[in-house]
Amino acid sequence: MNSVTDTPALEVRRLTTGYGESTVLRDLSLTVPAGGVVALLGPNGAGKTTLLRAVSGLLPAQSGQVLMGGRTITNIRAHERARAGVCHVPEGGGIFPSLTVRENLVMQAIPGGEAEATERAVAAFPILGDRLRQRAGTLSGGQRRMLAIAAAHVRNPALLLVDEASLGLAPIVVEEIFDFLRRLAADRAAILIVDQFAVRALEFAQSAYVLRKGEIVFDGGAEDLLGSDLFSHYLGAPPIPGADLGRPRP
């Protein structure tokens, strides 16, 4: 029997799902190790956001299983998955625009831990300390993204799902966000990240999956993908020299 540390943070087993009569993901399997960082890459429309929504419970499975820490969560609702430690930071969202920064953070805190939650968020992104009374909807795009990730952080998630961490943000903000995610990873947080900048995501992650038309076409080491011709073939960018070929799916 596996020990706790051997049990993956996330297992997706032969998942099929979609919207209405449209199937987006077909028989998809994926694993995020405990304490591991996995990049989920692919062109627009490949199904990346659909997968994150299925894992967080926003989209029901048509077939297959989703397990967290060895526990089947396939049929439990999104709010129950959130209580169990699944935290989804959606693309461009994850905050309540009409509430202040402090109120957004307090909403995620455990009862009695409101002050600590605010302190942790400000420690993660100090600029938020100057914006605590400001309505979240009036923040800059980068500050809203910081707030969404900080609000996830104060929940102590067992599994963090980040959809497009850097989309549309200034490079200096992107670096600050990834610096914080690296610190989380160093503390053994399990992270599944989608990002339009594939190189940055692969430099951050240990392993990677590439989706194409709802199916996994590559799974292997992040460095392997960076250095292979598959990087260009599937992601439309030249490979990074110096790494071995990864494992393409047939």
Results as ranks from 00 to 15, higher is better:
1 M>D: 11
2 N>E: 06
2 N>H: 13
8 P>V: 05
8 P>S: 09
8 P>A: 06
9 A>R: 06
14 R>E: 13
26 R>Q: 15
28 L>I: 10
30 L>W: 07
33 P>F: 10
33 P>G: 07
36 G>Q: 14
41 L>N: 09
42 G>D: 03
45 G>Y: 10
47 G>M: 09
50 T>Y: 10
52 L>R: 05
53 R>E: 14
54 A>Q: 05
54 A>Y: 03
58 L>K: 03
60 P>M: 04
68 M>S: 05
68 M>P: 00
76 I>N: 04
77 R>K: 13
80 E>H: 15
81 R>W: 08
86 V>W: 04
88 H>A: 05
89 V>G: 11
90 P>H: 07
90 P>N: 08
92 G>S: 11
94 G>W: 10
96 F>W: 10
104 N>S: 03
106 V>A: 00
109 A>M: 02
113 G>C: 09
114 E>V: 00
116 E>F: 00
116 E>D: 15
118 T>H: 02
121 A>N: 03
121 A>P: 06
123 A>H: 07
124 A>P: 03
126 P>S: 04
128 L>Q: 00
129 G>E: 07
131 R>I: 01
132 L>W: 00
133 R>C: 02
133 R>M: 12
138 T>F: 13
142 G>V: 09
143 Q>S: 04
150 A>F: 06
151 A>V: 04
151 A>E: 05
152 A>N: 08
152 A>K: 05
156 N>P: 00
157 P>C: 12
163 D>Q: 14
164 E>N: 04
166 S>V: 11
169 L>F: 12
171 P>L: 06
171 P>Y: 12
174 V>N: 07
178 F>L: 06
178 F>T: 00
186 A>F: 02
188 R>N: 11
189 A>G: 00
190 A>F: 02
195 D>Q: 04
200 R>D: 07
200 R>F: 01
201 A>V: 05
203 E>N: 15
204 F>L: 15
205 A>G: 07
208 A>M: 15
211 L>I: 11
213 K>G: 04
214 G>A: 09
218 F>H: 10
218 F>G: 08
219 D>R: 15
224 D>G: 15
225 L>A: 12
228 S>C: 06
230 L>Y: 14
230 L>E: 13
231 F>S: 08
237 A>C: 03
239 P>L: 10
243 A>E: 14
248 P>L: 14
250 P>C: 09
